[in-house]
Structures are given as structure tokens and as C-alpha cells.
């Protein structure tokens, strides 16, 4: 099985997903994991697809899509992620837009051995918002990380919270 990492970014319009996925389907590709979201009027799709079509064939099939579009296709190895036992947290940051907030916050998370599995940011008016899903190693010093994040929060005058989100088995 060949895996392809595909990104498409284009001006949002009704039918853009239907058109893109239709083309991928006609090439015999299956959508495995994907995330698609609207960013400032641009529709951004990031997909991992499996199938035998070549990267060049996929790229040239997607290029004729209507509207300006950025397309990339790369073959990627099939890497199943495994991890050591971890605890799950949600990190949220909000405040005025300041250069360097994201890199400062996420470097503290990395410094604590944390792994970010999902992150979104939004700028709306003067409000900058970051929400991330974070895995911390079972033996991580959460209070030390909270303290380090508090220092960043003071420096940038933003609010930073880190809350546990363990799932309940039912």
C-alpha cells in the first residue's frame, strides 16, 4: 500500500470537498485520515490517502480544479504512532495578538516532554485564541509546566490554562 500526504488550499466555495474527493476517488485513492477546515476564507485540506496512483498523477488531476489552489502531494511512509503512557490535557491561550505567543507557549510544552496532537489558532478582531490537545508523559511535572506557562502568560499578558481531559470508560 502506498500512502500519500496531500494538501490543498483554495478559496472556499460550496462543492470544493466534493470536487476534490471525487477526483481522488476516480484515481482509486482511499481517504484514510484527513482534516479539513476553513481558515480566513481559505479552505484547507490535509489528507493521508492510500492507493497506487503516482504523486505526479494525483497532483496533475487536482490542478485543474476551479479557482486558485495550492496543491502538494508527497509519498509518505506508513508510520503507526505508538507512545508511552501519557495523560491528556487541553491547553488554551487567549488574549491580545502578540508576536511569538504560539512559539513561546508550545516550546514550554515541548520542554516538559509534552506532545501536541492537535492545535488550532484563531485571530478575530483583537482576540487571539489558541487551543491545543497535549499529551504529557505519565511522570511529567504538571505544576512546573503550569508555572512556566504562567511566566509566558505574564510576559505576553494573555490567559493560559491547562486542564486535564481524561476520558471516562463507559
Amino acid at each position: 500500500m502506498t500512502l500519500h500526504a496531500i494538501t490543498l488550499v483554495g478559496h472556499d466555495r460550496p462543492g470544493i470537498i466534493a470536487e476534490a474527493t471525487g477526483i481522488l476517488g476516480s484515481l482509486g485513492l482511499n481517504l484514510d485520515d484527513s482534516t479539513m477546515t476553513l481558515l480566513r476564507g481559505q479552505f484547507a485540506m490535509t489528507l493521508i490517502c492510500d492507493g497506487e496512483a503516482s504523486a505526479d498523477a494525483i497532483e496533475s488531476a487536482l490542478q485543474p480544479m476551479t479557482g486558485p489552489l495550492a496543491v502538494t502531494v508527497r509519498e509518505v511512509p506508513d508510520e503507526r504512532t505508538t507512545s508511552t503512557p501519557a495523560t491528556s490535557w487541553v491547553l488554551s491561550v487567549h488574549g491580545g495578538d502578540r508576536p511569538g505567543i504560539v512559539s513561546s507557549v508550545v516550546s514550554r510544552v515541548a520542554g516538559a516532554g509534552g506532545n501536541i496532537t492537535d492545535l488550532t489558532t484563531h485571530l478575530k478582531g483583537d482576540l487571539y485564541l489558541l487551543v491545543a490537545e497535549v499529551d504529557l508523559p505519565a511522570d511529567a511535572d504538571v505544576e512546573a509546566l503550569r508555572t512556566a506557562l504562567g511566566v509566558v502568560a505574564d510576559e505576553f499578558a494573555v490567559g493560559v490554562t491547562l486542564n486535564p481531559v481524561e476520558a471516562d470508560e463507559l
Binding site: 503507526r80 504512532t81 505508538t82 507512545s83 491528556s88 496532537t117 490537545e133
Partner: peptide
């Protein structure tokens, strides 16, 4: 929806 981690 969150993918559950596969532990080593």
C-alpha cells in the same frame, strides 16, 4: 473525536 493512543 480523539484517536486513542496505542501504548508500546
Amino acid at each position: 473525536i480523539h484517536a486513542r493512543k496505542t501504548y508500546l
